[in-house]
Design a protein around this nucleic acid. Structure first.
Lengths: 233, 233
DNA sequence: ATAATAGTGTCTATTAGACAATATCCT
DNA sequence: AGGATATTGTCTAATAGACACTATTAT
């Protein structure tokens, strides 16, 4: 954070944001990738993202979070605010982009399952597709995107264990089984329906969740619906 | 992550690393700050840090982690590897540096209490001092360093709760009370000595900790010493 | 001897998990 | 009716927390 006034002449890196956009479909954690239509890695699948627009003038350009929101809107076509978005961390390995020095700030986005089908290709992507994270190791990806995906997935798993984030991967109203499915996929283990129900009901008692009118059949029998209480602790 | 070959002409931000260097002294979580000797914020206390050295040439310069290690060595004089170092996240608010667009990657470092006294001022700091985090709100700081410190402190608290990181804030060998003090300071609450002891002993049973020869008096009575088992799960 | 901390034991409440049993709904 | 899931209930083990008690050591 210290430098003389002539720092402007020191070489600077390009800074990009890369998005790991997750959703839950078919009882599976899936990730949105786009096919690159320019070198390097032309034709290769990659995380959506782009460079942060900056300036040294009075208006210094967009914030990192704003850049991530912008890219998210461009790539998914979803309205801002419909999707949970949070920074994971920065990746700055030298040589991660062969052309020039790029430091990438990774973000994690969570798309509710109802919205996943409407996500479409943005302007600078030849194609966009949801990939199952389960078989992604075999898939060749551009840059160090495997590493970013691993870090983001780990970030997501940790967040699911320690915060309310599971709620971002479920529709507005949901059944006990639907929320259980989120935990089962993220924890990678089957959970006892009865035991999970008690955990769930404790959240209702604590006022985190509340019953919502109507019922829905996920399986063979209709189940009660719930929703989140207003917000914030 | 997409751009034409002429991206080199787009404006880029400067990228810095800022270090939140914590230690535990006098039953208190403390943070190392340096007094800036150049504008802006000349004479103001600030986080140690500096710009990342980059290039677009074949050798693209240092990694973010390397830059943080280098700054840490320069500012503390401690040998690399003696101190735990981990990235927190990137801060990229527009206008956070009044002169030019700077994106800062924050790192958290944990200095064992025996090493804290030997930490001395580095080359580009007029002065360096440990500050108690308890009263830091009143202290005016340069840039958005208050925000970075809050995020890093939160990061640390979370890590203490969910990982083995408390061990980085204690000497090589330590007593039950010394480890308890780490948790008491970080959790901001007194812990029952008897109950904490059982938690501790479970770690011994699990092979995380092992007894070490000798005893040490933290208070009025000598206590057994422990150390960490080799490493890794 | 006394104060202060180390170390042990006991009891209760909460929670996770295994697992059985009943209720409801779709086909 | 039959199969699948929802929902409820029971039991056990692990853990956290409150709290009382004994042991050891510096002063």
């Amino acid at each position: 954070m210290d430098e003389p006034g002539h720092i402007r002449r020191y070489p600077r890196p390009a800074v990009a944001v890369d998005l790991t956009i997750f959703t839950l479909r078919d009882a599976d954690l899936q990730l949105l990738l786009i096919k690159r239509k320019r070198p390097p890695f032309e034709g290769c699948w990659a995380l959506p993202g782009g460079f942060v627009r900056v300036s040294d003038e009075q208006d210094q350009g967009e914030d990192l979070d704003q850049a991530a929101e912008r890219e998210l809107a461009e790539e998914t076509g979803l309205p801002t605010g419909a999707v949970f978005l949070e920074q994971v961390r920065a990746f700055g390995q030298a040589g991660r982009d062969p052309r020039l020095r790029v430091i990438s700030v990774a973000y994690m986005a969570l798309v509710r399952p109802e919205l996943a089908p409407v996500v479409c290709a943005g302007g600078d992507a030849a194609d966009a597709r949801w990939f199952s994270t389960a078989h992604l190791e075999q898939q060749p990806l551009a840059f160090d995107h495997h590493q970013i995906i691993n870090a983001a997935t780990e970030h997501l798993r940790r967040a699911i264990r320690t915060t309310d984030l599971a709620f971002e991967l479920v529709p507005e109203t949901f059944t006990v089984a639907e929320l259980r499915a989120v935990y089962e996929v993220l924890e990678g283990a089957r959970l006892d329906p009865g035991n999970f129900r008690r955990r769930f009901m404790r959240m209702v008692d604590d006022g985190v969740l509340q019953e919502s009118p109507g019922k829905r059949a996920t399986g063979s029998r209709k189940a009660r619906l719930y929703r989140f209480k207003p917000r914030q602790t």
